[in-house]
Simulated assay, not measured.
Amino acid sequence: MPITQNVLRRAAQTSPFFKSFSHLPGQPTAFLCHSHLDRILAEGLQHLLKDQGWNLYIDWQDHEMPPTPNRETACRIQLGIGASDWFLFLATESSTASRWCPWEIGFADGRKDVNRIVVIPTVDDRGRHYGNEYLQLYRHVEPTALGRLQFFEPGAILGKALGSL
């Protein structure tokens, strides 16, 4: 079952933490591909992953990112994707309609091991599911009944704990 966008919104409202992208030994790092229209959802995912020991790079938290997208923006995104252990695609209505997100996942697909690309499917308040078109290509993440996140191989029905990867 995809993660509900309400769960991500609630997670974003938890106590704030220092948002930095620094790699600690043994801590997985991930680049988050998402639509800027989903800022709250991205922050919620950042909170959930931080609770499980992950460090998530979100481009609009990068103080060196240009205010208006340009060639430097593309270069910084490429660097962020390359420097991260994982590439995560937050699948929402906005990200699937975005002009940048397909470019980012295409870049990641050409540069990263396919096992390091993960889709995070979501379901919105109206019950619409997003990310299904990618689930057969890449691993995906779904929440457990206890609210923890787990990975699934393409087409698999049994997942693995996030910490086991």
Rank of each mutant, 00 (worst) to 15 (best):
L162K: 03
V119H: 06
N55T: 14
S98T: 08
L24Q: 13
A74R: 04
A74V: 12
T96A: 06
L90G: 02
C75D: 14
A83I: 03
H23M: 03
I120E: 05
Q78Y: 00
S95T: 11
N6W: 00
S94M: 04
W100L: 01
D59F: 13
S15D: 02
P66Y: 05
T92P: 06
I117T: 07
F152S: 04
Q46H: 11
A12N: 03
A42N: 03
D109H: 12
G155W: 08
C75Q: 13
L88E: 06
N132V: 09
K50C: 03
G131S: 07
F107Q: 12
A12E: 05
T29M: 01
P121F: 10
E43A: 08
F87T: 08
G110N: 11
E153T: 12
C101M: 04
G44T: 05
K160W: 04
L158A: 15
Q78C: 07
A83Y: 03
F89Y: 15
G163I: 07
G44N: 03
L49D: 06
G131Y: 05
D125G: 13
P16N: 14
H129M: 08
L32G: 02
S84M: 01
P121S: 04
R148A: 15
G131D: 07
R10H: 10
A83E: 14
D125C: 07
R111E: 13
M1D: 13
L37K: 13
E72D: 12
R10T: 11
V118M: 07
E93P: 00
A156I: 08
E142Q: 14
W86H: 03
L158E: 15
G159S: 09
A83M: 12
R9A: 10
I120V: 15
P25R: 05
E72L: 15
A30E: 00
S84C: 15
C101A: 14
I117A: 00
T96P: 00
G155F: 13
E104S: 04
V114P: 06
R116N: 14
L49E: 02
F107E: 11
F18Y: 09
E64L: 11
A11N: 03
R99K: 12
E64C: 04
R76G: 01
A156N: 08
F87C: 09
A12S: 15
F151E: 05
R10F: 05
I40K: 10
R139I: 00
N70C: 13
H63F: 03
Q52G: 03
M65F: 05
A11T: 05
S15H: 02
S15Y: 02
